[in-house]
Design a protein around this nucleic acid. Structure first.
Length: 232
DNA sequence: CCTCGGATCAGCT
DNA sequence: GCTGATCCGAGGA
């Protein structure tokens, strides 16, 4: 029961471990509130931690979310209690989320290592790799688990950049990516960059500009480009 | 059973 | 900026 954890990084005072109530809030709020917190992963005697610098929110009814089509064997952790770790693999790369409310979660995209400073921690795959998170960590309860925990931040970030999420093909324009401005660990492209009138490259307006996957099998060229709830 | 395509990353143009 | 690697879950036949 480590309620407190002495970090030797930037702050000398111990920080509280975040509990259920922190995660049991609207996902966007949690995604922002996670910026500046410390994620700790223990592996026996060894331990690594990062100051979270970049997150993304995945909501209910969100076509980009793994939970969009309901629970499956792979995404079941997303329907767990607030604070549950949802770890998945894509292209041989492991990524981690923290579940907020049922079916919603926050993807952990980047962090700044607390020890020293080396280690590639920009991007969800590299972050997990640095921390040593694997598929076996899927389903852990980060509010109680002995190996994975999240510690409260000292101060809230001075400025938060907001932008569209990375790497998705659905709901690409929703501003659900959050990052601490000026943190070097934030992955590219850096969010929050105001649309310069000189750069017309609006990339993907509607039809994904990202290569139209074409393998063999023409079968039926499905041009399903729809679904885009324009909230605000 | 078979096929599609991905919440990424590295590497080349 | 754009492409390929690479493999397994999800979903349809």
């Amino acid at each position: 029961m480590a309620d407190r954890w002495s970090t030797e990084g930037r702050s000398s005072e111990p920080r509280r471990r975040l509990g259920r109530s922190f995660f049991d809030r609207p996902t966007v709020r949690v995604a922002r509130a996670l910026l500046g917190t410390t994620l700790v992963v223990r592996d026996g005697a060894e331990e690594r931690s990062v100051l979270l610098s970049e997150t993304e929110a995945y909501l209910r009814g969100d076509p980009a979310s793994h939970a969009f089509r309901g629970p499956t064997r792979r995404n079941r952790s997303m329907f767990g209690r607030p604070g549950t770790l949802y770890v998945f693999r894509i292209h041989q790369v492991v990524c981690a989320n923290l579940v907020t409310r049922c079916g919603e979660a926050v993807l952990l995209r980047a962090g700044t290592p607390n020890l020293g400073a080396d280690g590639r921690t920009s991007g969800p795959g590299r972050l997990c790799r640095y921390l040593g998170l694997t598929l076996s960590d899927d389903g852990r309860d980060a509010t109680r688990d002995r190996r994975v925990m999240v510690l409260a931040r000292g101060r809230r970030p001075r400025a938060v950049a907001v932008g569209p999420r990375v790497g998705i093909r659905q709901a690409v324009e929703r501003p659900l990516r959050f990052a601490i401005r000026d943190e070097p660990s934030v992955s590219r492209p850096r969010p929050g960059r105001p649309p310069t009138s000189a750069s017309p490259s609006r990339s993907r307006g509607d039809g994904s500009s990202r290569r139209t996957r074409r393998r063999r099998r023409p079968s039926s060229a499905g041009g399903t480009s729809g679904g885009r709830t324009g909230g605000r």
